[in-house]
Design a protein around this nucleic acid. Structure first.
Length: 201
DNA sequence: GGTAGGATGGGCT
DNA sequence: GCCCATCCTACCC
């Protein structure tokens, strides 16, 4: 069973190629809404993203420069940046911008689209469908994305982003990012307006 | 309906 | 030693 934006079934189209990611981070963050994140048998439609810029964005991990943890953000686009947070959770990003230029898009929420049984098993704390993947730590649990995928090429392999077969018109809601303490006023959070799987209205 | 507080460990100063 | 790009539970309307 697969859900669409309005409950209709959705199948998956071609994998997004590297040039999709090789452009300004904000463009990538907006363009990812409605695309399908697939990891093995589990998949979800991306409904909420945040852009983290390389320069002057003090909320971005890359603001402190290239370190062992942040090296992937400075590398070629179309790769996964996965980091460990609050001692318990992992967050999944897609690297944007040309090689050598930092920039990453945090995927904050998905609409479950495939592998629902697996997701329920991996998310025993979830009480209802809207709880399964409506947050950055929730969706990595549901899709079994861990630091083992840090640096993975998302244009090939088992962790990829696909075009939905049916393109639909969506309205993008823009606002400040969540859970940060610096650069808090920048409008770098994007979501599909009205989608019930967004982490916060 | 709402929120305060705790869990838990890696990264960097 | 402090700061986290978070989530869940308990408890209170």
């Amino acid at each position: 069973m697969a859900l669409g934006f309005s409950g209709k079934s959705v199948t998956f189209g071609p994998i997004l190629k590297r040039d999709f990611y090789a452009r300004p981070t904000v463009e990538v963050a907006r363009a990812l809404l409605g695309k399908v994140l697939v990891h093995g048998p589990a998949a979800g439609i991306i409904v909420e993203t945040e852009a983290y810029l390389g320069s002057e964005d003090l909320a971005a991990h890359s603001a402190r420069g290239l370190t062992p943890r942040t090296r992937v953000i400075f590398g070629p686009p179309g790769h996964a940046y996965v980091y460990f947070i609050y001692g318990m959770y992992e967050c999944f990003n897609l690297v944007a911008e040309p090689d050598g230029h930092p920039g990453a898009v945090l995927v904050r929420a998905l609409e479950p689209a495939a592998g629902l049984d697996l997701m329920w098993q991996r998310r025993p704390a979830a009480r209802k469908l809207e709880d399964l993947t409506s947050g950055p730590g929730k969706l990595t649990l549901a899709l079994a994305i861990t630091r083992a995928q840090d640096g993975a090429d998302v244009t090939r392999g088992s962790l990829v982003v696909r075009q939905p077969v049916e393109r639909r018109a969506i309205e993008i809601q823009t606002g400040p990012r969540v859970g940060i303490s610096q650069s808090t006023d920048w409008p770098l959070r994007f979501s599909i307006k009205g989608n019930p799987f967004v982490s916060r209205a």
